[in-house]
């Protein structure tokens, strides 16, 4: 009888846990507080926040392309959100490795697709606030808790169903607390020009933002665990 009671209690506990999980899953997004973050600009006179701050980050299902109404979308996992550096607002997310055009179809040797979502803040370069900023070379570096570099490279420029972004498939097989560093080169390096006359020019220059070198965002404390996609 005792065994039976224990069994029933165990089943009830498990059933409750399933119900709880089910409730969470029914929502398309789950809000949780991200760990303390440090955004530091080490090479440029950027207005990145240097003090630790709390950011709200959501695991969210991304918007779908118009007309794609039979799908559930893909889930983006945030690393950090809305770090500001120079005229850039930067967020980092990751999700499953994706095949890309141009001979980049291989996904089997990668663990994640890392993405830097970059939009313009108030600026005098002609970009509307919230616009994607093109023509930049964006380098990424992921540093393990041991101090070793776990992955590094330059992002490619691409479009997904939610628009253009800088991203790359990255091999990151080990769970760890990583630091992640994005370095933004001036669009001018890749031949992006600005009108300079008073009548049609936006009034500013890239030198204003890049006079001390590239812009850099560093985020420490990314608790990462590989997923099965």
């Amino acid at each position: 009888m005792k065994k039976k009671m224990i069994g029933i209690a165990l089943i009830a506990a498990m059933a409750l846990s399933v119900t709880a999980c089910g409730n969470t899953n029914n929502e398309s997004s789950t809000t949780a507080e991200a760990p303390e973050t440090t955004a530091a600009d080490t090479t440029a006179a950027a207005d990145s926040e240097t003090e630790a701050e709390k950011t709200e980050a959501e695991v969210k299902t991304d918007a779908l392309a118009p007309g794609d109404d039979d799908a559930a979308g893909f889930t983006e996992y945030p690393i950090f959100e809305d770090e500001e550096v120079g005229f850039l607002n930067v967020s980092a997310v990751y999700f499953q490795p994706v095949p890309m055009s141009g001979g980049n179809e291989n996904t089997e040797d990668f663990n994640i697709h890392l993405e830097a979502d970059v939009s313009a803040l108030e600026n005098n370069l002609g970009f509307g606030v919230g616009d994607w900023v093109p023509y930049m070379t964006v380098d990424y570096k992921i540093i393990a808790s041991s101090g070793d570099t776990a992955a590094e490279g330059s992002f490619m420029v691409m479009s997904a169903s939610d628009g253009p972004h800088y991203g790359a498939n990255v091999k990151l097989p080990d769970a760890d607390t990583y630091s992640i560093e994005f370095t933004f080169h001036s669009p001018e390096e890749n031949g992006y020009l600005l009108h300079t006359d008073a009548e049609t020019g936006p009034g500013g220059s890239f030198e204003e933002y890049f006079k001390d070198g590239n812009l850099k965002v560093t985020y420490e404390g990314w608790d990462y665990v590989p997923q099965e996609w």
């Binding site: 999980c21 789950t30 949780a32 695991v59 665990v225 997923q227």
Partner: peptide, 10 residues
């Protein structure tokens, strides 16, 4: 791991 990644639990 899934619950942590999906932030179902803090």
């Amino acid at each position: 791991r899934i619950m942590l990644t999906k932030r179902m639990i803090a």
